[in-house]
Design a protein around this nucleic acid. Sequence first.
DNA 1: CACGTCAGCTACAACGTTTTCGTGTTGATA
DNA 2: TATCAACACGAAAACGTTGTAGCTGACGTG
Lengths: 347, 347
Amino acid sequence: MKQKPTLKVIAKELDVSVSTVSKALRDSKEIGEETKNKVKAFAKLYNYRPNNIALSLKNKKTKTLGVIIPEIVHHFFTTVISGIEHYANDKGYNVIVGLSNESFKKEVINLEMLANGSIDGFIISVAKETLSVKDYHHLSETIDQGIPIVMFDRVIDEIDCDKVIVDDVKTSEKAVRKLISSGCKQIGIISTKDYVSVGRLRTEGYKNALESKGIEVDTNLILKIDDKFNSDDNLEFLEQQIHDYFEKNTVDGLFAVNELYAITAMKVARQKGLSIPNDLQIIGFTDGVLSKHAYPPLTTISQHGFEMGEEAAKLLIERLENTNDDEEPFKTTIVKTDIIDRETTKL
Amino acid sequence: MKQKPTLKVIAKELDVSVSTVSKALRDSKEIGEETKNKVKAFAKLYNYRPNNIALSLKNKKTKTLGVIIPEIVHHFFTTVISGIEHYANDKGYNVIVGLSNESFKKEVINLEMLANGSIDGFIISVAKETLSVKDYHHLSETIDQGIPIVMFDRVIDEIDCDKVIVDDVKTSEKAVRKLISSGCKQIGIISTKDYVSVGRLRTEGYKNALESKGIEVDTNLILKIDDKFNSDDNLEFLEQQIHDYFEKNTVDGLFAVNELYAITAMKVARQKGLSIPNDLQIIGFTDGVLSKHAYPPLTTISQHGFEMGEEAAKLLIERLENTNDDEEPFKTTIVKTDIIDRETTKL
DNA sequence: CACGTCAGCTACAACGTTTTCGTGTTGATA
DNA sequence: TATCAACACGAAAACGTTGTAGCTGACGTG
């Protein structure tokens, strides 16, 4: 186990000064050709690489991005991370991930752990609990300390920062319109509680679509799932709620704000003997593995997570590398969506 | 935007020395009560947090783990990351993720980017390309430099390090035995090419099970998928290969070495009019979202990714924090598996 | 009064870099 | 021969922290 060589050991070994070694390796014209070659050869031989930590300390930048997401076991978030990684690596940045597990406290801890010099900026999708308790002090304090934040997907209007979102209202409107034009007469929606911005906005789009076609909105047809900040374990609870919904309502079209809700609705519908898409047409939101491999394959809205990730990383890195004194105004970029036609809708 | 306070600014502000501030905050008995209180109050007021980078430089440890995986958009890997994060955070460690995208070159780059001081140790599941070209110099060099590595799932026998695996052979044996005892007469396997260790081992288990029951192994029934280092885009190619397999062979039991293969096989079988589990019983490997939400829900082997992640993090951190001079021998821990009975098998 | 002790503080080095500002030697020029 | 530029290199500071060693003044003891 040979130790990593430092400038100092190279200097001692070659009997020159540390500065000379540093300059030689950076090809400074201050150093003579001969010395340069000698140093470079030695450095290559011993596989010298500058110590990142020392560089970070000196340059006051770490070339590392902090990504905080509610859950990693979730296809949408992982595609976003892929996008972030892709863009960031390309620009020489690393990515640290923190998981909030939808918990406010863990979000705060993660932010604090990383905000002490470990990273140059954050990309975050806020936890449901944070949205629900409406306590954003950790975010505003971080921004106050000069650490930029980019929010994506779940976004907080009150916080001024760069944002990457999807036009939830318009997109949902489009999806529900599609259901209408495919012949659905009774269209329901399975959404989240209102404090989750995306749920609220997608419900809004749902209403807009109906109203624009002169259809009255029946609030009984709007199911707002109570998922206790944790969508993974309480699958039965989710099924139960959807089951009850089907007991009380008869629908021939359904719009679900994520793919899990859509898939689960399909399952419950199948148990009730409904045929998809003949008796019931369904559109989901987010194009994940579930949608693609479901039976029948689910017609869904693609959020283009990869592009969202790339865009978020781009916004963040641009802000980090912007050396102008005049602060750039905050941008919120809207990533386009597409409806991917599969087999849970007609036509 | 107020700057992060450092020891130096606190010292200047309170007109004491930097050392005094440092010691006061760490509650050293060298410092008088009065001064301590003054410093602590000031630090709290200005929300002082020690700079991680400076600490890392000084202590020569970063309290950060580097995790390198082939793909993040993959349920098994994300559960492993969850497990790693869970254990690591608990011990005050952060996690940097690097994606190799199954590419040898990207794996090397990622390793090098992080090995220059950014992390204390690696947890890695090697890329298929690396396994196929059999070039492990980046891994052995990293270990040589004193940076410990823990491998999980896809593991390299030639490299001496801690490992976390599943007993692929035994587990597969159990699964195939189950198929046999459920009445299957013609049992096939969908595996990977042999350079992927898990594929090779699971195929071995498949053969063992058959032989132990006195059934002759028919190599035609062994399909080794050629997936070109990228399982995501070439879904049609995968389908094609499975389709051809079904054309040539008639099976009533199928063991697939991952869930995507299993799900795709189900899809192809359905197209051929086969009823599951009546005409064909299927068992997959890895309990992911696909298995759970498939139609019908897939009987599968749970690898307990979360536990694997926790175990990997545990091994790594224990090694990092082991201050004994005598090197601990390398361990490989075997995480248990379970068959999760769902609806693609009888009984 | 000389000496030692102790509390309470400060100075300094070190971690590995980069960069600014010297400094000494050479050779050419006036 | 005195002056000066060009060249090749070194010393030192800085980033933020911690730990060791050193310093100062007050007090007690013989």
